[in-house]
Design a binder for these strands. Structure first.
Lengths: 222, 222
DNA sequence: TGCGATTTGTCCGTATGTATT
DNA sequence: TAATACATACGGACAAATCGC
């Protein structure tokens, strides 16, 4: 069934709204639109050569995904970053990912563990000879494995929201430091524990794993 | 500070979009719009006496809150219900509420525990002489206590999304049975454990509490 | 299968309300 | 206080896709 997903995935972004949403998200993630920056509708619509209707709908979707914020009659701004928000993000990630592992634990098999290993290898490869953006995507993809494997639609949708925030903070991290992190050990341990017998060990590793991620991004912020 | 929230709460729904969003949400929750039902833009805009622009934005917001679903060129429909979705909803609730309690545990004090007790009393009162809608709101408000008390903005925003789904399923439950449930014991136990010393006891009670809620709603579905 | 009717997606011009300076 | 910029809202129009017969 995974094959079907990858093969007959229909044309993405059929609507203009979806294309615009993706473009703006990309610009936020690559730092062209910086946290706190105001997005003016008229300017955007003329830049993108579209009318304001689909643009506004796309912006509103990004608000609900946590990428932008809006206040009545004040327009849209890229969500500002803060240490508090970062802390909340990582504590939330930890809680959700622990839950995801508790769901996945009895569902593991050779097929989906192979898939985890594939993502692990891609992540390791891209850390040495990949660009920023692809490194981030591989990092996200690696952590997405557990969520996707749960086949828990609601959980996945909440992770999708979270992962965009993760992308924002990780892109700041990379933009500021250019370092792709010496976290190979942690990542390898993560994969090994996911293959192991102890759910408790996996979950307590998540505490450390996320704490290290938090520290790493935090140090890049200030 | 809670006082301020209640007193100088600014004019809600300043924009037409927000008013429309609330109206449609209310109609979904009170069963006028049933799960799976299609919402036609032109019909809605003429009924509500508004143009399509703010209506479409409001509908999109409801999509992102999980109330509606939409497909390109096929329009909006009220999210259908299913046993799978219900199961996911309650497992997600359990995970989030356990997390919330772990955050809240060291933050408890006489003031916020009093607030929990107030909500408990209101819930008990409304169960005997309140209407359906207010019973649901008190139920949600009771469970919202732990989230609000965490002061964890990200967690709260995820709970807000979930709570709307809870409202939908609870309204089905009430609409079908009219029974307001003999769950006084569980609710009292919940409050007492929240006042108690053992986080473990609270969290394992959540498993039972949610399981009972799930069974109750499920039995109403079929 | 096709064809017409319906509905969504998009555009544009205009008017009004709000925030900001 | 006034002026400007901008968000909000309207309504008509048309294209594109879907739906129903």
């Amino acid at each position: 069934m995974n094959k079907h997903e990858n093969i007959l995935r229909p044309i993405e972004d059929r609507t203009l709204r979806a294309q615009v949403r993706r473009q703006i998200l990309d610009r936020v993630l690559d730092g062209q639109f910086k946290p706190g920056e105001k997005l003016v509708e008229t300017a955007l619509s003329s830049q993108l050569q579209i009318s304001r209707s689909p643009l506004r709908e796309a912006l509103r979707e990004l608000v609900d995904q946590g990428i932008l914020i809006s206040e009545p009659y004040k327009g849209f701004r890229v969500r500002p970053v803060s240490e508090t928000d970062l802390k909340e993000l990582y504590s939330m990630r930890t809680a959700l990912e622990k839950f995801a592992f508790s769901v996945v634990w009895p569902l593991r098999n050779t097929e989906n563990l192979d898939e985890l290993d594939n993502r692990y290898k891609r992540l390791m490869a891209v850390r040495t000879d990949g660009g920023q953006a692809s490194a981030i995507e591989c990092e996200i993809s690696f952590h997405s494995w557990v969520y996707e494997t749960t086949e828990h639609g609601l959980l996945i949708s909440h992770w999708e929201r979270l992962s965009n925030l993760v992308r924002i903070y990780m892109s700041m991290h990379h933009n500021l430091h250019g370092s792709r992190g010496p976290f190979a050990d942690m990542t390898t341990l993560y994969r090994d524990l996911a293959n192991g017998d102890s759910l408790d060990a996996m979950q307590s590793h998540l505490d450390e794993h996320m704490a290290q991620g938090f520290d790493s991004v935090l140090s890049a912020m200030k």
